[in-house]
């Protein structure tokens, strides 16, 4: 019932449909004697319209990889392209602008501004995009409604539970309708019940035909929410499994896609 997906170099027909593509991404930290290689020639393709989970043991490089994908870190070697735009062709300034417009972020510790109400927090990506405050707040209000927190619009983060704060953070990450949503361990600080609520919310609100959603987690309680599970170990993608019968994206759009009923196999 769980199928494997061969993660060969995504070249040739259909590759433009992939939202995120990583080609031979290496990442080293430090230099000289203290140099460590955290990512080893990572090739990865993530489509739109799905909820993709990046899973693996602590320290295997998930956060590093997602940071590179989101343009917060530069790869030591290799390239990342998002929706056909190659990272290496963007200047530092263009990259910041690209992040502001196209990427939504959800952090493990929510990172809401404590001095701002839920509405104002949600409005921040729009304020960064220089949308007038009244318009931004109106849009933020609608977004809070979508995550089921319309009645907490004026509350400050300290007055909200962890689960509620993470829902505010999700509203903030989606308010400017980004094409890519990255969430790093969004449930790590939450109890099981709240964690499930957050994942249900992501499936219901975040997943859109033209948006890619990547959730990094080592929380196996939520693996069941993924359409696609990308397993990492020791800085390498080990294998990619696709949910049985998942039809968000036609299989033929993925080069090297194995039909869901193929036998499980392990990638090096």
């Amino acid at each position: 019932m769980i199928a494997t997906y061969d993660n060969a170099t995504p070249s040739g027909a259909g590759t433009t449909a992939m939202a995120v593509q990583c080609h031979g991404v290496d990442k080293d930290f430090g230099d000289g004697d203290t140099r460590i290689q955290v990512l080893h020639a990572v090739d990865l393709a993530v489509p739109s319209g799905e909820l993709s989970l990046l899973v693996g043991p602590s320290g295997c490089g998930k956060t590093t990889l997602i940071s590179i994908i989101a343009g917060l870190l530069d790869p030591t070697a290799g390239d990342v392209s998002l929706f056909g735009t190659s990272r290496s062709r963007l200047s530092e300034r263009e990259l910041i602008e690209y992040r502001a417009v196209n990427i939504g972020f959800v952090f493990q510790q929510y990172d809401l501004l404590p001095a701002l109400s839920a509405t104002a927090n949600v409005a921040i990506p729009l304020l960064i995009a220089r949308v007038p405050r009244t318009t931004a707040f109106a849009r933020a209000g609608e977004m809070l409604d979508e995550v089921g927190l319309a009645d907490r619009a004026d509350a400050f983060p300290a007055q909200l539970s962890g689960g509620e704060q993470q829902r505010v953070a999700i509203a903030r990450a989606l308010v400017h309708e980004p094409r890519l949503l990255v969430c790093d361990e969004p449930t790590a600080a939450l109890d099981a019940r709240s964690g499930q609520t957050v994942l249900e919310l992501l499936r219901r609100v975040a997943v859109q035909p033209d948006r890619a959603v990547i959730v990094v987690t080592h929380d196996n309680r939520i693996f069941g929410y993924g359409d696609r599970i990308m397993e990492m170990a020791d800085g390498r993608i080990q294998r990619v499994r696709v949910r049985d019968g998942h039809a968000a994206v036609a299989p033929e759009e993925f080069p090297g896609f194995d039909p869901p009923d193929a036998p499980e196999s392990q990638q090096p």
Binding site: A70, L72, I96, E97, Y98, R99, A100, V101, I103, F105, F107, Q109, D111, L113, P114, I124, P125, I128
Partner: peptide
């Protein structure tokens, strides 16, 4: 951290 989040958000 908040400043960092703002930076990440562009």
């Amino acid at each position: 951290r908040q400043f960092g989040a703002l930076k990440a958000m562009g």
